[in-house]
């Protein structure tokens, strides 16, 4: 910028020292967050992807083997059995959440959005399990369902169903579904809250208009509210998907151990990763196979997110409200 002779006075020179500062502050604001995030989140992920392409030698060095580890994971009979078992268990887990947790969350949110008396209290209490550590939740249910304590049996007896009781967590046939339902119990608060937030964001005028147009309460929900909250349901679905592949570790490790007892019937990708990486019993820990399992998980999540972004989110139009 040009300076002319008019501003040669001393005060002006003084002032110029306090000129607009450079753009250094932008760097100062951003650098710490970007650095910590890069070093402890982005870099490890990239490094895991890289490690999955190597194999360790006995002398501690590593050799590049391309997609060899992935071939092992997918086609070596021993690995493939474990991988596909864990993967399909994750799918079951996901399925149970989608058909039980999210519809239940939707129902509770829909009822809460009618603003019943004590609505705030219901909402607060239903959210309690979500706050607890998965470890604690796991143990609570382990105790309740334990045949030793007999609480579950007593409770079923109170409604005349004592005959139905089985030690569900210990049976290969029911362990996985039981664990899934425990997880549903814990996390239903999240879809409930998200959907509730979306529902109360719908302007009252719109509902009033529908009522004047003669729609019943049920029809209003079905034809007016539901279409408007579809984007939120999409978000709930993708959050369920991601959580299912990673967060399920804590619960299963706590209740059933790293082997996904009984007999791997509750083994999921998270426990498989943990076992592969750290070793268990006779099996030695393997950094490179561990990185491979983690990378497979990364790709599985990437596929889910891509499908969500490409298909679901584009279709589910967001309405201005």
């Amino acid at each position: 910028m040009t300076q002319t002779a008019t501003d040669s006075a001393a005060p002006a020179a003084l002032r110029r020292r306090r000129k607009r500062a450079g753009r250094l502050h932008i760097v100062v604001f951003l650098a710490p967050a970007v650095l910590i995030y890069t070093i402890f989140s982005v870099y490890p992920l990239a490094e895991s992807l890289r490690l999955s392409l190597y194999d360790g030698l006995e002398d501690g060095s590593a050799v590049w083997i391309g997609l060899g580890n992935y071939a092992t994971l997918l086609f070596d009979p021993d690995w493939a059995r474990q991988f596909w078992n864990a993967f399909s268990n994750n799918l079951v887990l996901f399925f149970v959440h989608m058909v039980v947790q999210n519809p239940l969350g939707l129902l509770l949110a829909a009822l809460l959005s009618l603003a019943p008396r004590f609505g705030g209290a219901y909402r607060t209490l239903i959210f309690v399990p979500t706050l607890l550590s998965v470890v604690i939740v796991g143990f609570i249910w382990e105790l309740i369902l334990s045949p030793l304590w007999g609480v579950a049996e007593t409770l079923l007896g109170a409604v005349g169903l004592a005959g139905l009781y089985q030690p569900w967590l210990g049976l290969e046939s029911s362990a996985l579904v039981t664990v899934s339902l425990i997880s549903v119990w814990q996390y239903v608060g999240i879809p409930m809250m998200l959907i509730y937030a979306a529902l109360i964001a719908i302007p009252d005028e719109l509902i009033d208009a529908a009522r004047v147009d003669g729609l019943s309460g049920f029809a209003i929900f079905w034809k007016v509210k539901l279409p408007l909250i579809l984007p939120t349901l999409g978000i709930v679905a993708i959050l369920t998907y991601i959580g299912n592949f990673t967060a399920s570790f804590d619960l299963i490790y706590s209740i059933q151990g790293a082997l996904g007892a009984p007999n791997f019937s509750t083994d999921v990708m998270g426990t498989l990763l943990f076992r592969t990486f750290f070793g268990q019993q006779l099996q030695l820990g393997d950094v490179h196979m561990g990185a491979t399992v983690a990378s497979m998980l990364f790709f599985i999540i990437l596929v889910g997110v891509t499908i969500y972004l490409a298909l679901v989110q584009r279709r589910l139009q967001r309405y201005e409200m």
Binding site: S41, P44, E47, A291
Partner: peptide, 17 residues
């Protein structure tokens, strides 16, 4: 983007680091 990618997937490298 880190919202979508759980940090646990980098555990192997985090431990090394």
């Amino acid at each position: 983007v880190g919202i979508m990618v759980p940090i646990r997937l980098g555990t192997v490298a985090i431990l090394k680091l």
